[in-house]
């Protein structure tokens, strides 16, 4: 059989062979995977988000309907959380970029002469992944709790008001988000900066650009693919994150993000349509923001 298949394939003219079904066949597992694990839950989520409460059912029982009102309800009820999610994610992304860029530049450009140092620093960037993300966040909660050494010392030095807290504040949540997603920023930045051709920087300085101008006009534009990839990889999960902002970790009652509200609706309030509608809103908003961002940053021809 196999031989027969080969011989017929070989007998076909070049042009026809290109359209052979083998390519499609090879794509099948991927397509099946996408349909099963992405499309199915998505459709189910959309259907759930439009459900209406069952007429004579108990709490948590819903019927399929076209209840658009769910979306209006969640937006009116949860708009502060929606704004907060994107606000926190944005600040955390900017903080991660500001911290990561010099680091990635050092590893990728300055440390080229010392490959050993390069690998060592990369390992250090990745090292936190060896410990569970939940454990690390919990550890931070302890380190920064009111009774911790750091906070008591700060209070003793009058650098913090005696009744102030760190955990439970927006600052703590943004700190947690930045900390947890920084490797996702550093690694893509590193991969672009590592390939940065320093001859362009030299050409810039030869053409009268001082180091600041070279950085702004040459280095930044040339590292745009890394910046876009890094900010997306940080912003998207940060906007949907529900661990850092959770009251069990670094958050408090006033720092709840969309992820926390979705969790509460799904698991505590059993309001599946509201949770689903919020998820869809989160997804759509991220898609729109990312689309605008990629278009505006003009990286299509650099990617």
């Amino acid at each position: 059989m196999a031989f027969a298949a080969f011989s017929t394939a070989e007998a076909q003219p070049q042009a026809q062979r290109k359209r052979s079904p083998i390519a499609l066949f090879l794509l099948l597992p991927g397509i099946a995977y996408l349909v099963l694990f992405f499309l199915t839950p998505l459709v189910s989520l959309i259907l759930t988000s439009l459900q209406a409460p069952s007429e004579f059912g108990d709490i948590g029982v819903y019927d399929y309907a076209f209840n658009w009102q769910n979306y209006v309800d969640v937006v009116t009820l949860y708009w502060p959380h929606i704004l907060r999610s994107f606000g926190y994610a944005l600040v955390a992304t900017i903080a991660a970029l500001v911290i990561s860029y010099p680091l990635a530049y050092f590893i990728g450009v300055k440390a080229r002469r010392w490959p050993l140092l390069q690998s060592l620093m990369l390992v250090l960037v990745i090292a936190p992944f060896f410990i569970s993300f939940l454990l690390r966040t919990l550890a931070w909660k302890q380190i920064l709790s009111d009774e911790s050494f750091i906070i008591t010392s700060l209070k003793a030095l009058s650098l913090m008001a005696p009744d102030a807290h760190f955990t439970g504040t927006p600052f703590a949540v943004i700190f947690g988000l930045t900390y947890n997603f920084i490797p996702f920023m550093t690694l893509p930045l590193y991969t672009t900066l590592e390939r940065l051709d320093v001859r362009y920087l030299e050409a810039g300085s030869d053409l009268y650009a001082n180091p600041f101008h070279v950085f702004r006009k040459v280095t930044i534009p040339l590292s745009m693919p890394g910046i876009v990839a890094g900010t997306l990889l940080t912003f998207i999960p940060a906007a949907g994150d529900y661990v850092n902002a959770s009251r069990d970790f670094l958050g408090g009652p006033d720092t709840q993000m969309m992820g926390n509200v979705i969790e509460a609706n799904f698991l505590v309030l059993l309001n599946y349509p509201a949770a689903a509608a919020l998820s869809i809103i989160l997804m759509a908003a991220i898609l729109v923001l990312v689309g605008i961002y990629v278009k505006r940053s003009g990286t299509e021809d650099l990617l």
Binding site: R199, Y200, A203, S205, V218, L222
Partner: peptide
Amino acid sequence: TRAHERPVNTVFQSYALFPHM
């Protein structure tokens, strides 16, 4: 003196044209 302050321009062997411009 730093490169950008010298009254000198170079035609580079590798051209080094900025790819993003």
